[in-house]
């Protein structure tokens, strides 16, 4: 992995009102790289999906803690980890299939599909009753050069 330039860690309760807070926090932090509007929107959407998964799946029956760790690496790669200690995923491959959902009705089952297509790379590790860690990264275009370096 390339040299770490900046990072932030965030810990919050799995309240649905925090979905908006989490994606805005990630977007504000990444703003130092002068991303395009599309890049910013992609990252906000991916973070929103990951955090929503923690709320509606991992901590479905309880209020738990969600950890977000965002790092910026040299060259403009952003890596975001969203971690929970909730119920975990029995079958990760199945959970990642587009349109698969255990909730039915109003959930489209496209959370992972959105993360996958809006970010460059997505890795999911999980164990039942231990929790889930979603790691996603995206290389930004760095229109203005490596801004984060100068901070």
């Amino acid at each position: 992995m390339k040299k770490l330039l900046n990072e932030f860690k965030l810990r919050m309760l799995s309240r649905s009102s925090n979905e908006s807070f989490a994606r805005v926090a990630a977007a504000s932090f990444i703003a130092q790289l002068d991303p395009t509007i599309e890049e910013l929107s992609d990252i906000k959407t991916a973070v929103s999906e990951a955090v929503t998964n923690c709320i509606v799946h991992a901590y479905k029956e309880e209020l738990g803690t969600i950890y977000i760790w965002t790092r910026i690496f040299e060259g403009g790669t952003v890596e975001i980890k969203v971690r929970d200690y909730g119920c975990g995923i029995e079958n990760i491959a199945k959970a990642m299939e587009p349109l698969y959902t255990t909730l039915g009705g109003e959930r489209a089952g496209l959370g992972f599909a959105v993360m996958q297509s809006f970010m460059d790379k997505l890795t999911v590790t999980s164990a039942p009753s231990k929790g889930t860690c979603v790691t996603m990264s995206k290389k930004l275009s760095l229109r203005m050069g490596d801004n984060a370096k100068q901070g």
Partner: peptide, 12 residues
């Protein structure tokens, strides 16, 4: 802003 919840809304 819209994430896949918007898709759920339309599909529902």
């Amino acid at each position: 802003f819209m994430d896949s919840s918007g898709i759920g809304l339309v599909m529902g």
